[in-house]
């Protein structure tokens, strides 16, 4: 195994860990706002690490640039959609969970 392969390996695994944390957060967090926190942050970071790991294996510079573009698009998309869902949830009167409430 070369150094690049090992680095790629580690980055990919780190990405998987963040995806896992995002899923656990989605299962455990009490309301839609906190779940959005988990998805918007952990999953995007997971995708970022997967992207970096694959970047090291990219066959050509054009593919590498495309990977970065996909990641940036996914970032912009999930930030925007997350904002839209959160805003609509608030406008439709969904009350955020408080630390005293039952889950």
């Amino acid at each position: 195994m070369t150094t690049t392969e090992i680095a790629s390996f580690i980055l990919l695994l780190t990405g998987a860990v963040f995806f896992f944390a995002g899923t656990v957060g989605l299962l455990r967090f009490p309301d839609v706002y906190t779940r959005l926190h988990a998805l918007a942050k952990a999953d995007n970071l997971g995708l970022g690490f997967i992207m970096l790991g694959l970047l090291l294996q990219a066959p050509s510079p054009a593919t590498a640039l495309k990977l970065v573009l996909i990641w940036l698009l996914a970032l912009a998309a999930s930030a925007t959609v997350g904002f839209l869902i959160a805003r609509r949830a608030r406008q439709n009167g969904i009350v955020p969970w408080q630390s005293g409430d039952r889950r």
Binding site: V32, R35, D43, A77, V81
Partner: peptide
């Protein structure tokens, strides 16, 4: 709103 989190899920995990 919880249901449409599926869109976010596919946007990140599906892409990955």
């Amino acid at each position: 709103a919880d249901r449409l989190l599926a869109a976010l899920l596919f946007g990140t995990t599906g892409v990955a």
